[in-house]
Design a protein around this nucleic acid. Structure first.
Lengths: 144, 144
DNA sequence: GATTCACGCAACTTAATAGGTATCGTGAAA
DNA sequence: TTTCACGATACCTATTAAGTTGCGTGAATC
């Protein structure tokens, strides 16, 4: 399977929404991401459940950010979209008693856990507001 | 899909083989891992192509280690089994020109690359010999 | 030389999961 | 009342590790 792009896509959407007045429809978001509205609703439902966005039906409805951009990190978004597994590789779960497997899985598991800790720390240290700021900085440097 | 267990399994096999006189058959290895011989042949073909093991047909045949255990790291084995992707999450590949997507993917991509570097470094720093040593140490501490 | 053993190879199936699509229901605004 | 937009369900597709079946081939044994 291709890599899970839900986090990347939702960040993309959120930053756009942060710089957009009024709600955005699933249709408009889907066009922006090159996909379809049902997928957007499915994925953004997690963000809504986490309280980061709200959705409204009917005319003038759509999605809007409700969260404080300073209070939500990339890790929060990752978890809100289901907190899918981070790694594609893992360790086997051998029948207990094989000391060789234990040693192997300890070494491999340690390395994976260390990398996961780093990634989680990194994602947890970047707020949505920081991404918006990066975007603004980039615009400034381009226009200057 | 479940996590890729080829690396974990191959390490398990290699350490067993390192402590085993004479070749081991795919059948015996498969029984050990709770799977079937064809899968073993398929995965170990990569190790053979890398020169880490050899295979012999016929009576008394099977698999044997040919590599210097000090010279082969977990990273080498990872690559020998196909070097599959490490992460289950990734970044979207938006149509070029969306500055928001660029900023998002830069932040996310940096975090992923950093974690990958750490993991690769860790895997590259552990030799098969070190795992064998860990196993021996564990046995000593249990028996004492 | 016939048999047995064990790998080599090809083809197919299964399982898990992100992504994609179609359809209908529901509530809110126009 | 019509239209819009989300909600929910059901289904399909694609990808990939894993598992399975069957046959071929070469080496050792009898």
């Amino acid at each position: 399977m291709r890599n899970d792009r839900r986090l990347s896509r939702m960040l993309h959407v959120l930053i756009h929404m942060a710089r957009h007045d009024g709600p955005m429809t699933s249709e408009a978001i889907a066009r922006m991401l090159g996909t379809n509205p049902v997928l957007i609703r499915r994925t953004m439902a997690g963000l809504r459940d986490a309280g980061y966005v709200s959705s409204e039906k009917g005319h003038g409805g759509g999605w809007a950010i409700t969260a404080d951009l300073n209070a939500v990190t990339l890790l929060d978004v990752h978890r809100a979209v289901g907190g899918p597994r981070l790694f594609a590789i893992g360790i086997e779960h051998p029948e207990p008693g094989c000391q060789v497997a234990i040693v192997v899985n300890e070494a491999l598991g340690d390395a994976l856990q260390e990398a996961e800790r780093l990634l989680v720390t990194r994602l947890g240290s970047i707020s949505l507001a920081a991404l918006v700021q990066s975007f603004d900085d980039r615009c400034d440097s381009v226009s200057s």
